[in-house]
């Protein structure tokens, strides 16, 4: 417990050290765009693939449970829509990104730490934490919500295709379900979650990278810890945000 509190304390201090004025705003912008490209464009493929299949599987599962009963068929589309927008797209996408982007961030910063590149920045008079981490957090906050919206769209497309191909629900009924009793707040809710998860993934991963000491083995351990802690953080805040905004 004390160790856990110690880590939380270190994390809070680390986050506090990030918020200093960038030495050069144009350098900060350049770094942020570079990170946006890495996080966003670099994750388009994997997020798209996972979202298509998440939507497809959710249609099959919901169809399996509801088909042949007294429930109207279009409800399958509606449930697929809500479960994907509210939960699967933001949470599954961010869990995937914690593995892909988070581990890369932790290893990048961890390697810089053990090869004294971070020390070199400090000696030059650069706030290394701010220079290395702040662009990643900003880029994550801007890019991950976009990826989540993209995931939402693809999961619904995946759901519609799988419904049609498997004969569970026709495209027309699926679309009718997508339109039925749509609450726009669901999208806002997903975006709020995506925003929070973006901060969790980028800050926790950078934190674990930044406190790496030792060599290659420790870089690997930091990378693993970054993914594990980010995933735990996502699941925990998923519950907290849902409880606060939906309950």
């Amino acid at each position: 417990m004390i160790k856990f509190l110690e880590i939380i304390g270190q994390y809070v201090l680390f986050m506090g050290s990030l918020f200093s004025r960038p030495e050069r705003f144009n350098v900060f912008l350049k770094q942020s765009f570079h990170e946006m490209y890495t996080i966003g464009v670099g994750s388009f493929g994997i997020v798209g693939l996972i979202s298509l299949f998440t939507g497809a599987v959710s249609t099959v599962h919901i169809g399996y449970q509801l088909i042949g009963g007294l429930v109207p068929e279009y409800l399958i589309g509606r449930i697929v829509r809500d479960s994907n927008i509210l939960e699967f797209s933001p949470t599954v996408t961010c869990l995937v990104l914690a593995g892909k982007v988070g581990s890369a961030m932790a290893s990048e910063i961890g390697t810089m730490k053990v090869t004294e590149q971070v020390d070199a920045l400090e000696i030059m008079g650069v706030n290394s934490a701010s220079y290395l981490v702040l662009p990643k957090i900003v880029a994550g906050m801007l890019t991950i919500p976009i990826l989540v919206v993209y995931a939402m769209g693809l999961s619904l497309i995946g759901g519609a295709i799988s419904g049609e191909l498997s004969g569970i629900i026709s495209m027309d009924f699926f679309i009718k379900g997508l339109r039925a009793e749509f609450i726009p707040f669901s999208v806002n809710f997903a975006l709020i979650k995506a925003f929070a998860f973006a901060i969790i993934i980028t800050s926790i991963s950078s934190f674990h990278g930044y406190k790496t000491e030792g060599g290659a083995l420790e870089v690997g351990q930091s990378s693993t810890r970054a993914v594990v802690y980010s995933c735990v953080g996502i699941i925990f805040f998923d519950y907290i945000i849902s409880e606060l905004l939906l309950a």
């Binding site: 390697t111 810089m112 090869t115 004294e116 590149q117 020390d119 070199a120 400090e122 000696i123 030059m124 008079g125 706030n127």
Partner: peptide, 19 residues
Amino acid sequence: KKEIRKKIGMLFQGTALFD
């Protein structure tokens, strides 16, 4: 300290060039 550090150059054992 940052102002003093701007007057410091350092050559690291492992060079610490940015990869």
